[in-house]
Structure formats: C-alpha cells, structure tokens
Amino acid sequence: MATARPLPEAGSIFLDARGGDRALRVSWHHESGLVVLSLWRDNVCAGSFRLAVDEVPELISMLRAGLDTAYERVLTQPVAHRTA
C-alpha cells in the first residue's frame, strides 16, 4: 500500500463520517485523462479507482439524482421529524 503523496493541483479530500482517519481523495490527472478516487486510512492508500474523464458526467449525474432525492425526502418530512 502506498503512503500519502501530495494531491495534484486539482483534487480534494473528503473525510468519512465514521471518522477513524478514513478519507476519500479525488484527484484529476489531466495529462492522462483520468480522475482517481482513492480510499485512505491512517494516511495509507487502501485502494484506488481510475475513472476516465468521459465517464465523470455520468457519475456526477448519479450523485446529483441522489442528492435531489435526499432533499425531496427532507422537505416532505413533517417538521417534528426533521433533525437539526
């Protein structure tokens, strides 16, 4: 397993809601036409997935649809059941 390297200029880190030093790194590699999604724990890469740039719009669309559904559910819940 690889140890952490600095992110490329275009990238982000998302921390896992469970904590435990888990994270998702997303990095653009324009020179190779890839987006790399990698799972990290304790500053060690546990796995990675290479996504071709032309597949990114489909991933974004799926995430957007899930977000829309989540917001619709929150908005249709009775006020007493909503959490702060």
Rank of each mutant, 00 (worst) to 15 (best):
G19I: 00
T3K: 15
L34H: 08
A80W: 08
L59Y: 07
G66I: 04
T76L: 10
W40I: 10
R50T: 12
A84L: 12
V35M: 05
A84S: 14
L75S: 13
R5T: 15
D16P: 02
R25C: 00
L63G: 08
G47K: 09
V35G: 00
A65Q: 14
D42P: 00
T83A: 13
L7Q: 04
R18Q: 06
I60S: 02
H81Q: 15
L24I: 08
V56W: 01
M1R: 12
L63R: 04
L63S: 05
G47R: 07
I13K: 11
D42S: 09
A80F: 06
D21L: 02
V36E: 14
P57R: 06
D21S: 07
A84C: 11
L24K: 01
R41M: 02
A52C: 05
P78L: 10
A17H: 05
A65M: 12
V79A: 09
E55T: 07
L67P: 01
L59P: 02
D54T: 07
D42C: 02
T83R: 15
P78N: 14
S48I: 02
H29K: 11
S27Y: 01
H30K: 14
R5I: 04
R64G: 05
S38N: 06
R25F: 03
L63W: 02
R50H: 12
V36N: 04
S12C: 12
D42K: 08
R82H: 12
Y71I: 15
D54Q: 11
E31Y: 09
C45I: 06
I13S: 08
N43W: 07
N43K: 14
E55M: 07
A65P: 03
R18F: 03
A17Q: 06
E31D: 15
V79Y: 08
W28M: 11
L59M: 12
L51W: 01
T76P: 00
G66L: 10
P8I: 06
L15N: 05
